[in-house]
Computed example of a mutant assay.
Amino acid sequence: MVLEPDGLPAAAAGSYYTAWLRGPDGTVVPPGSFHERRTGIPVFLWSAVEPAASPEFVVTLQSENDQPSPDGPVVLTARLR
């Protein structure tokens, strides 16, 4: 997957973003995290999960001091086709 986060601000110092794929049954798969400090840079993520099985794409803001969690502050959502 390629994420082109147009308008998503760069993660502040001490934080990073984590992407999540969520299925209709609530199953969550993390295709990756990114720590880009510049905006508009494509981010490449990978997952073996089919988009039809987990069509909800969510990006959360994470603190470098905590474990990543899909319950973190949501900064971006999308439906995969």
Rank of each mutant, 00 (worst) to 15 (best):
M1K: 04
M1I: 13
V2I: 08
L3H: 01
L3Q: 04
P5C: 10
P5F: 03
D6F: 06
D6H: 08
D6I: 13
P9Q: 13
A11D: 02
A12M: 13
A12T: 13
Y16M: 04
Y17M: 01
Y17R: 01
T18K: 05
A19Y: 01
W20L: 01
W20Y: 14
L21I: 08
L21A: 03
G23K: 02
G23Q: 10
G26L: 05
G26Y: 04
G26R: 12
T27Y: 15
V28H: 02
V28I: 12
V28N: 13
P31E: 07
G32H: 02
G32N: 02
H35C: 14
E36S: 11
R37C: 14
R37Y: 07
R37L: 07
R38L: 15
R38Q: 13
T39N: 11
T39I: 12
T39H: 13
G40E: 14
G40R: 14
W46C: 06
W46E: 04
W46Q: 06
V49P: 01
E50A: 07
P51I: 07
A52Q: 06
A52Y: 07
S54M: 08
S54T: 08
S54E: 05
P55W: 04
P55F: 04
P55E: 05
P55K: 05
E56V: 08
E56W: 13
E56N: 13
E56K: 09
F57N: 00
F57S: 01
F57Q: 02
V58F: 01
V58M: 02
V58I: 09
T60N: 06
T60W: 00
S63G: 07
E64G: 15
E64Y: 07
E64T: 13
E64Q: 15
D66G: 15
Q67D: 05
P68F: 03
P68S: 06
S69A: 14
P70C: 13
P70G: 09
D71I: 03
G72V: 09
G72S: 15
P73N: 12
P73I: 09
P73T: 05
P73W: 12
V74P: 00
V74G: 07
L76H: 04
T77I: 09
A78P: 02
A78V: 07
R79D: 07
R81N: 10
